[in-house]
Simulated scan of single mutants.
Amino acid sequence: MASTTAPSRNGPAGRQDTPPPPARPSGPSAWRSRLHRWDTKGTPYALVAPFFLVFAAFGLFPLLYTGWLSFHRVSLYNVDRAEWVGLRNYTDLFTGQVSHYFWNALLNTFTLGVLSTVPQLLMALGLAHLLNYRLRARGFLRTALLAPYATSVAAATLVFALIFSPEGGMANWFLGLFGAGPVHWEAGRWSSQFAISVIVTWRWTGYNALIYLAAMQAVPRELYEAAALDGASRWQQFLHVTVPALKPTILFTVIVSTIGATQLFGEPYLFGGQSGHQGGTDHQYETLGILMYDQGFHSSMLGRASAVAWIMFGLLLLIGLVNALITRRLRASQ
């Protein structure tokens, strides 16, 4: 009986036949296919390109240009002529002819940062804790907290300069109610820095309070109920439930406030603007920002001003590094 077999798929030499490659589309279909590939690959880059173009023009280029200027002696009135001086601008700041002003500005920046940041964050935490409870007119109070933040630096500083005016100022009038003599707020180191820290604290306390309030509302209510069942008072709940839950948020506000204090310029500059002494007659509240402005526009030393700017940039990088290390420690401990 003859047997039938299926036809072989191999060629005469035992080679397996392969199907021919698909033909490439031609005409309008080929153009649409190519356009689709370009759209898929290029659209993401086109969407993010405006940010990088703006950053390169207004962020990266000024950063690199000031870095280049910091190694040159450049006059404000003759920018085209730059003389290479290496690290002389930095050595002038650290150990040279303007070292006294630099270290004084660095110290003032630190003390103003402490005087404004610590009370600001403590008051913001307390206000957020009060607003976290059911109070009447909570919406109005939350809106009122943002009013100082929405006020311009110039308007707030000029008003507080009148409040701390040595002649007829409300601060001296209030001290007079208790028998204290008038204080020349701008003349003393600590009195002037206290006045400036009041301005900074007034502007930023409400902003930080709303950040804390948003974080507090994310804390589960079950934790407070369990603490209340254990007999914990509201103060104990705040210390042992609220504060541990807000550690990442507190760290964020501390870092942001420290960065803002490092760049402090508007408040101390305008506080002494009425008397014509930006930074004080004896540089008693001159910050790094004012020193940079003074070296660049008053002394016309753009290279030295750029060196101050890069030192401030290095301080901000150091603050960011400390932030990263502390955040990693917090995550590891949880």
Rank of each mutant, 00 (worst) to 15 (best):
D294R: 12
G289I: 01
H283F: 13
N323T: 07
G314W: 05
G296V: 04
M301F: 14
H277W: 14
D282I: 14
L316H: 11
I326V: 15
L291H: 06
Q295Y: 05
A307N: 06
T327P: 00
G320V: 05
Y293N: 14
G280H: 00
L318W: 05
H298C: 09
G296H: 05
H298T: 14
T327N: 11
S300W: 13
L291E: 03
L291R: 08
T287N: 05
D282A: 15
Q278I: 13
L321P: 06
L315N: 04
Q278M: 15
F297A: 09
W310N: 13
S299F: 12
I290M: 10
N323V: 01
L316G: 08
G320P: 05
V322W: 12
A307Y: 08
T327F: 12
D294Q: 14
I319F: 10
G280K: 06
T287L: 02
L321C: 12
L288D: 02
I290V: 11
V322T: 12
Y285W: 06
A305W: 07
E286G: 08
A305F: 10
G280V: 00
R329G: 12
R329Y: 15
S306D: 01
G280A: 00
S306G: 08
I290Q: 08
Q284R: 05
L288Q: 04
L288V: 10
D282K: 14
E286M: 11
H298G: 08
T327C: 01
F313Q: 05
N323R: 13
Q284C: 02
G314Q: 09
A307P: 13
A309N: 06
L317C: 13
A309V: 04
G320D: 11
D282V: 11
G296S: 10
W310R: 11
G280R: 03
G279I: 05
F297V: 06
I319Y: 10
G320C: 08
N323S: 11
R304H: 01
S306L: 09
S299E: 09
E286A: 09
Q295D: 11
L317Y: 10
I290T: 07
G303V: 05
Y293G: 11
S299H: 13
H298F: 14
D294L: 09
T327L: 03
A309H: 06
G296L: 02
F297K: 04
